[in-house]
Design a protein around this nucleic acid. Structure first.
Lengths: 126, 126
DNA sequence: TTCCTTGCAAAACTTTTGCATTAAA
DNA sequence: TTTAATGCAAAAGTTTTGCAAGGAA
């Protein structure tokens, strides 16, 4: 963490270890609740500050999947998502599982910064 | 509009003609401002009610592109989007411009409801 | 000490809701 | 006349900000 020029305070270390020990999709509120349950003294403002800081340094990725809130993804490798509409769950889809045989050329003066792919899932009818 | 069982009130007709006369991506606030500029008497609550109503009936589509607000797309045909990170602009990408040669199978008990594809664009470096 | 970070509360924003009034059928 | 939609203001939910106090270097 200090590699990035981020000062490793107690709160930041706890947030980092919560997110980075395994791939997860968490909201700010979930992170706050989780930290407090495990006895940490953290404020909501610090959680948001820290998540924004981590995202700015590329340690985590912020997702816009539903309009309701931001989700923070500890997997910063390129990948895509399933979104289960019934449960709201997010499931990672590795890059090799998707292959594009055609993509539109970016408009003049622009280049592709990244591709966000969300495959929405519903309960099977049949 | 009344085909869908929606009562065509003055406000709804104005919102519909603003959105549906040409393909557009607008926020609720933009729609409200636009209507008031053209002399309409509309409240914010009615704009939101109407947009949610139209979306529920499949007349428009709600997009989650950035976390900041919802965008309402008057193009309900299947399609994808470019998202210009510099300007925030959304540009439609027609379905035939994208071709998937591989997609992951949906998890057991689920089926694909839809695919949201957003190609993020930045200013070309070179 | 000096600078950065935290916590708290309040503010800012988007979206929803309650309720009396108004308009549509 | 009956039912549904509107407008306003207030509420709800998420995220940001201001500022005094606390902690790291």
């Amino acid at each position: 963490m200090s590699d990035c020029g981020i000062r490793p305070t107690a709160q930041r270390v706890r947030i980092a270890s919560l997110l980075l020990c395994e791939p997860q999709h968490l909201s700010a509120e979930q992170i706050l609740a989780n930290l407090r349950q495990s006895g940490a003294r953290v404020s909501k403002a610090t959680v948001y500050n820290t998540l924004n800081l981590f995202a700015a340094h590329g340690l985590i990725r912020q997702l816009s999947v539903d309009g309701t809130r931001a989700w923070f993804d500890s997997n910063v490798d390129a990948h895509y998502h399933f979104h289960d509409l019934a449960s709201g769950a997010l499931i990672d889809v590795p890059v090799p599982d998707v292959e594009f045989s055609r993509l539109p050329p970016p408009p003049p003066g622009t280049e592709v910064d990244g591709i966000d792919l969300v495959i929405r899932l519903r309960k099977k009818a049949s």
